[in-house]
Design a protein around this nucleic acid. Sequence first.
DNA 1: TTGTATGCGTTATCAT
DNA 2: ATGATAACGCATACAA
Lengths: 352, 352
Amino acid sequence: LPTIHDVARLADVSIATVSRVLNDSGPVSDEAQRRVLEAAARLDYWPNGAARSLTTRRTQTLGVLLPDLYGEFFSEVIRGIDHAARRERLQVLISSSHADTEEVLSAARAMRGRVDGLLLMSSDEGTDEAIRRIRRVFPVVLLNPRSELDGCASVSVANFEGARAAVEHLIALGHRDIAIVKGPAGNVDAGERLRGYRAALGDAGREPAPALEFPGDFTESSGDRAAEEILRRDPRPTAVFAANDSMAIGLLSALAAAGIEVPREMAVVGFDDLAFARYVNPPLTTVHVDAYRLGERAVRLMLSHGRADGAVARHEVLPAPLVVRRSCGSEASGRPARARREAGEHGFAPTR
Amino acid sequence: LPTIHDVARLADVSIATVSRVLNDSGPVSDEAQRRVLEAAARLDYWPNGAARSLTTRRTQTLGVLLPDLYGEFFSEVIRGIDHAARRERLQVLISSSHADTEEVLSAARAMRGRVDGLLLMSSDEGTDEAIRRIRRVFPVVLLNPRSELDGCASVSVANFEGARAAVEHLIALGHRDIAIVKGPAGNVDAGERLRGYRAALGDAGREPAPALEFPGDFTESSGDRAAEEILRRDPRPTAVFAANDSMAIGLLSALAAAGIEVPREMAVVGFDDLAFARYVNPPLTTVHVDAYRLGERAVRLMLSHGRADGAVARHEVLPAPLVVRRSCGSEASGRPARARREAGEHGFAPTR
DNA sequence: TTGTATGCGTTATCAT
DNA sequence: ATGATAACGCATACAA
């Protein structure tokens, strides 16, 4: 494989000149430039990135550390990161499924010398010390951190506000017994959404009741199971806030199977606004999370972080607006199907 | 930031010894080992990957080039790659959204010196020459290639066979006028699935009719639009094969809105078996694609490729089995909902 | 068992 | 405008 030396030899110039024309740094005569370009083309010379970044101390790549890769959320985060990085001609080095702090640390170590900065989303608690060690090595932007600690930039989703808005919506519709299907314990998002749920109830003067809080783990089947428990409760709640859409899907499915009509007999609201939320029956009212933007903003923060204005670490919070569709029965049900379709609501079952 | 020299100085040994203990290469006295380990820990020394791979000529990372990152398919491919790579302690350098050959090439160039091999999925035609140039630089495994050319290893999905099986299923159910909603022109998968559709019709002695082939682009809305055209046709087809699940979802939605009952008035079969396929109403009969495995196998091929047995480039084809649910009406409809749920079919609407 | 010295492929700093 | 040459941080062949 040809190196810069081979190109120099063929073009009959020094490696310094080759480097100059290829990087457009420093002055070069037209003649030399021509010869170098031709030699590089003939040899199909590809510069070695490792060597280059050893001297320049820049890698043109962004490291990304995620707890997992499963599902639409992470997929969209990555897509946002990739697009933003691409625009800046940066590469993306991804590593995921890190259970504990130790794994996060070793993954970060492996990136030393290979990335210019790290985008880190950690579901684990007590990562603070680890983050401090990582920050010594390269700049870090936190995605959805547990807290704003650390003095390093971060982007997060307004989980609390979104959840509160969702439950307030149910309250405004007249519901009094509102259940929640919680996310996995220890999960940051799950915790914030639970907090939002409780806050909304509290603001309405209603005491949050443990009996109305059902366990879940963000999977469809856990929503399914929760439905059965909820239906057993007496008095039966008239509305459910699922801490994410997957569980809401499970709920909807189980309710349909049990012959419970949504939203007439039970209102359901989710969180995430997955692509399919508008395609289920009835179209799911849910809280929109812009995962793509989360990744995109993280990259932007990283870039501005590098500049001088990074003195003050910025903390962005992406809004999580409620998207009202039909699973809470908030709208008049008399509208014809055509009108609803044009509004982007695509429930499956014939309306009758 | 500490280098190997700093560790050597603090431990009062040479850098060679430090390297030896840290990489467990060559003999080292217990005393020296102790001192080095302690020094490295005290300085929190993280070896520089670029420098290391410059000498070893190994990067411990896999390059991945994809045409896009959108949707469940790519997301799962990446997840499969990531897990398999992780098991081998490899990192993953991802780059996507490459429209044309030129972009693929420049992305690959940027990876020179940064990856030990490249996993390449290109939707573009005429990439053959580019692939040859890339292969000079590092080993390549093709994902879902247009053809088995190139003599380099590849993994692909049995698109043709899957599509044929899907359409044969419809034929076996007695359908004669079977429409297809095609994928985007130029797309490899779309092409193969169309071929499978035509082959099934041909095998059944039916002439493939252009009037039954409707355009689509793999999006929900294109399935939606196709439905309207299909319903306008006279005689109206009694079954539709959607070249992917997203379009099938669009179809289902539009059919429901038009008051057409599925599967009684119109059978629908999809392709991909997205997570939500079993949750729509009726649960979608579709062809299963194991995207996770696609990525996983690609990594495995890359690894064995490196070894001596790589002399013969292997070509794996992942099966794409038909998953029969309810959108084609293949099963007796008398079964109670509970039985169906236990079989993993979770349609939303009450059955009635 | 240990240290010295060379090379990996670039970029960058000098002279010229 | 150009060409030696010194880093960059590490691994390793070789000498001791």
